[in-house]
């Protein structure tokens, strides 16, 4: 899958990412209506996704991230074997994303100051999984957190030559009618981050 930077972790260093910004991140992300689920391993992550599928009565899923991480690929395989309709091929994603119930992708790092996650979505399929289904789940390594947008852009300036990337901070929202907050106007109404609590070992591997 095409990415803006093939390995963002090469840019991270102690002065950029630090788990001490976790509390800031969690507070700000929740304030932006992001749901955060912390898991201690990928088995738990799989269970969590399975529970979301059941509670939302999801029938089909479009997902990326399996090429970057064998652990994520395993989860998708296991879900498929459990009878979940999950599409990971880019053309299958393009075909099914408009009707899928859940999209799954990955985040590179998070920002404490704003509760945002940075998403590298050069590929078409990584964008539609996060925009078309009503529920969007991303994996995040809890060690990869930067302090604020200033640091975030120090990281980005080293990896961003061309392509498509940005930040997601909660679900799609509008307040265009009487300034009443409504979620899910164009994109997902639920944005869920599954935080994998494993030591920084680079990306999701």
């Amino acid at each position: 899958m095409k990415k803006v930077c093939s390995d963002w972790t090469k840019i991270f260093s102690q002065e950029f990412v630090n788990p001490i910004f976790w509390n800031d991140f969690e507070l700000n992300a929740k304030a932006a209506h992001t749901e955060i689920i912390k898991v201690s391993n990928f088995e738990e992550a799989q269970m969590t996704i399975f529970n979301i599928i059941r509670s939302t009565k999801a029938k089909s899923i479009v997902a990326v991230g399996n090429e970057e991480s064998t652990k994520i690929a395993n989860i998708y395989n296991n879900l498929y074997n459990l009878g979940v309709q999950i599409y990971t091929d880019k053309f299958a994603i393009a075909e099914n994303a408009p009707t899928a119930d859940i999209g799954i992708s990955t985040a590179e790092f998070a920002v404490g100051e704003t509760g945002s996650v940075c998403v590298d979505c050069y590929s078409y399929e990584s964008r539609v999984v996060g925009m078309l289904p009503p529920v969007h789940i991303v994996f995040l390594n809890c060690n990869n957190i930067v302090k604020n947008m200033t640091t975030a852009f120090k990281v980005i300036s080293q990896g961003f030559k061309n392509g498509y990337m940005g930040f997601i901070t909660g679900p799609s929202r509008t307040a265009d009618i009487e300034r009443v907050l409504s979620l899910g106007v164009h994109g997902p109404s639920r944005f869920i981050i599954i935080v994998v609590d494993v030591p920084a070992i680079g990306g999701m591997n």
Binding site: K90, V111, T114, Y124, M149, Y164, M165, F167, T169
Partner: peptide, 26 residues
């Protein structure tokens, strides 16, 4: 807001997948 829901940056052409004559192409 401390940040809006979406902050998107695009540099140059990026892939698009679409159906042409019944076939998906990138």
């Amino acid at each position: 807001q401390r940040m809006t829901s979406y902050m998107t940056m695009v540099a140059g052409p990026t892939p698009v997948i679409r159906k042409v004559n019944g076939n998906w192409i990138e």
